[in-house]
């Protein structure tokens, strides 16, 4: 390839693509697309909106479970009652943020001006990334309340009655810290054994890599717009 390329060469390449002398056969792909017009496209926005639907359903189930627990404990407002309230609130946050992000994602017009559309997409993706990180980290400290509430719903037995409040709160914090420590250890092991994908996935989950990526994309668009 010469180092002295003329823009006319590049235009000739595009000309070949215009006339169909190069590139994929569009008619075959178009025929396939017509057969399944409602297929969810593989774009991040469609996946994001779909993911929020699952989050809303999960949030509703968690909120209902939380409500069932705290409403049965109105006479004894101990740790089980608090667990029910925590789950109720967590489910409500999942639903609210899921509805908000889904609405924002669905309102984006892909046929709008590119800069404006990309800006809106990047903002929604950053909000979703932050929400995902906060909710994900929140679960590290909700295992015991969630487990005790689920156990109560299934068996009617209050696990918290086996020990004092201080013991359970201490266990909860300890388990949360342990989960993070174990994830870090697995991440280090994966990195040492050359499993870069796993190491990066855990690293991303722990440090909010998606939030940083989304922020970087937003910054890039702002720089372009400036």
């Amino acid at each position: 390839m010469t180092m002295d390329t003329n823009l006319a060469d590049l235009r000739r390449v595009l000309g070949d693509l215009e006339t169909g002398q190069a590139g994929p056969d569009i008619s075959a792909i178009l025929a396939a697309a017509k057969l399944r017009p409602h297929r969810s496209a593989g774009i991040a926005l469609a996946r994001l909106a779909q993911g929020q639907l699952w989050q809303i359903c999960a949030g509703a189930a968690i909120m209902l479970a939380g409500t069932a627990v705290w409403s049965s404990q109105l006479g004894a407002m101990g740790l089980l009652f608090a667990s029910g309230v925590l789950l109720h609130l967590f489910g409500a946050v999942m639903i609210a943020s899921g509805v908000m992000i889904r609405m924002l994602a669905l309102r984006i017009d892909l046929a709008g001006p590119v800069l404006e559309t990309q800006l809106r997409m990047a903002r929604v993706e950053r909000i979703a990334a932050f929400e995902g990180w906060v909710l994900g980290m929140g679960w590290c400290f909700l295992w015991i309340p969630a487990g005790a509430a689920l156990f109560y719903l299934l068996s009617g037995f209050d696990l918290f009655s086996l020990g004092g409040s201080g013991l359970w709160i201490g266990c909860n914090v300890t388990v949360g810290v342990l989960i993070i420590a174990v994830l870090r250890w697995v991440r280090d092991m994966a990195a040492e054994s050359g499993n870069v994908g796993l190491a990066q996935a855990i690293d991303g989950a722990l440090t909010g890599q998606r939030v940083r990526d989304a922020s970087a994309a937003l910054a890039e668009i702002h720089t372009f717009a400036a």
Binding site: V13, L17, E18, G23, P24, A33, R36, P37, I43
Partner: peptide
Amino acid sequence: RKVAATYCSTEHDRADLIQDILV
């Protein structure tokens, strides 16, 4: 074809992108 050639390096990625755009 032009958009796919601009943003994708492989034949497979180009076909995928065109299908997503068409949908």
